[in-house]
Design a protein around this nucleic acid. Structure first.
Lengths: 185, 185
DNA sequence: TTTGACATGTAAGCCGTTACATGATTTA
DNA sequence: TAAATCATGTAACGGCTTACATGTCAAA
């Protein structure tokens, strides 16, 4: 049985502990969302689909002060499918799209100051992302039980750091300073 | 007028020089395909759509030894739309999905040797990708007219390099050597 | 004679996003 | 009385992928 990518992710998140669509969506956004974004709508529909396939079981839990909630938990079939996917050695290579690189690729169509602005805004955004992820890494440093989640954040930091280094490296190559237009070098 | 992401990419590729679907797909695969994959089918349909919107013009060119081909070229409207998009300061942040990190995230469900295998195969694939991209960077070093395309390849090299460094950093943290299980440290 | 280059598409389908829709309870 | 939290979805649409479908010419 094969699932769409999101299916495995949702299955994995439910496997941590039984949860509702509401909670799962919130948790996903601030954890796995950094490298596998999920929308709330999609979470709900995927939960139902996994249920229909017998990989999750659902139970309605009435509450006093809040609406009745649907709590999902993973079944033995679900565990089998999840672990089977996790252990599959072949890593799917997803289509990675990078709108920044597309613009750089067509850089000949842009004026030097536009290239500069493009790199500047990319640098700013990347620095912010790096700092946010570094904060996560630091926060999880105390908890040895979180080493896997911490490793994913470290990955993000490493990526961002490399992107900043790349900007610094290519900026002088791509943005010819107009004031040096007539230099003798 | 807004287009799907692929629309702008195809538009940009045609803007370089008039071309056929066949040639464009081949060129896209070995150039922009590294950070924006296109399928052949998609290229053909997107070309037709851009035509219908008046952003491209098509002409049938009969050939002696080969089938008649449809050559597309960009129109003035097309140039306007393309440059408008390239100059838009806001960079869309696409949903970046990373199946490796998903597996790491759920690393608690995997045995240490499975984590190790996962990291090893990722490292191998990454090293290959880095070397391939480095070859592109080296090849383009001689041609100053290719500095933008070269910069995109440099980006890939920087990313791959950071990924390799990350693997080296987290491997000892995530893969507890079973032979040291009972060490006194 | 079979492979590879040249050349163009159609059809089906699903994954995933965006927008829409609802309603109770607590807190400011 | 307004906003935030808790809670659950539906509907529509479109982008993109996969698989299918066809044919000529040159070279091995």
């Amino acid at each position: 049985m094969t699932l769409p990518p999101t299916g495995y992710v949702v299955l994995g998140l439910v496997s941590v502990r039984p949860t509702t669509g509401h909670d799962l969506a919130a948790y996903a956004e601030r954890s796995i969302g950094n490298f596998f974004p999920l929308t709330r709508s999609h979470v709900y529909s995927e939960l139902e689909r996994l249920c229909a396939r017998g990989l999750l079981a659902v139970s309605e839990v009435p509450q006093e002060r809040f609406p009745t909630k649907r709590v999902y938990e993973i079944t033995t079939d679900g565990i089998e499918v999840l672990d089977g996917w996790l252990q599959a050695s072949m890593l799917e290579t997803p289509r990675q799209r990078n709108p920044l690189l597309v613009r750089v690729f067509f850089g000949d169509r842009l004026a030097p100051e536009q290239i500069r602005d493009l790199l500047d805004s990319y640098e700013r955004a990347t620095r912010e992302r790096r700092d946010a992820l570094q904060a996560v890494v630091d926060r999880l440093a105390e908890r040895p039980g979180s080493r896997f989640r911490r490793a994913t954040a470290m990955y993000g930091v490493a990526q961002a750091q490399a992107q900043l280094a790349w900007v610094a490296e290519v900026r002088p190559l791509l943005v010819k300073s107009t004031t040096q237009e007539g230099c003798l070098c």
